[in-house]
Amino acid sequence: MKETENNWSYIIFVRFEEKMSLPLNEIETFLDFTSSELSISKNSISLETRFRDIPSWSSLNALIYISRINEETNVLITSGDLSEIVNLGDIYKLIKERSNGYN
């Protein structure tokens, strides 16, 4: 009984499993996702595309994009990360490296 009482809070917070609902660590899925989220034709982007050159890239759309990546993969990307990288392949690499949990 005592153990049950002490563990009640774990029943309340059943966190979402920290795993990908979309396999963004696969290149094609990542490019499909990016095309959809940034409203750009998939034919016009690749891992070499500089994300700041995408016409829809703005402070709001960047935040939406980063929040959607977190929603799908649980990966967190900061402004510091973005300042050190250039193209979509770098974002893909971050997702792949961090997709085993928080970072």
């Binding site: 966190r15 402070s59 709001l60 960047a62 935040l63 980063i66 929040s67 977190n70 967190l76 990307i77 900061t78 402004s79 510091g80 973005l82 928080y102």
Partner: peptide, 15 residues
């Protein structure tokens, strides 16, 4: 305001 960082810190530390 750096919206991306506020998002990252909130999601990481508030829950």
């Amino acid at each position: 305001l750096n919206g991306i960082d506020v998002f990252a810190y909130s999601v990481k530390y508030v829950p």
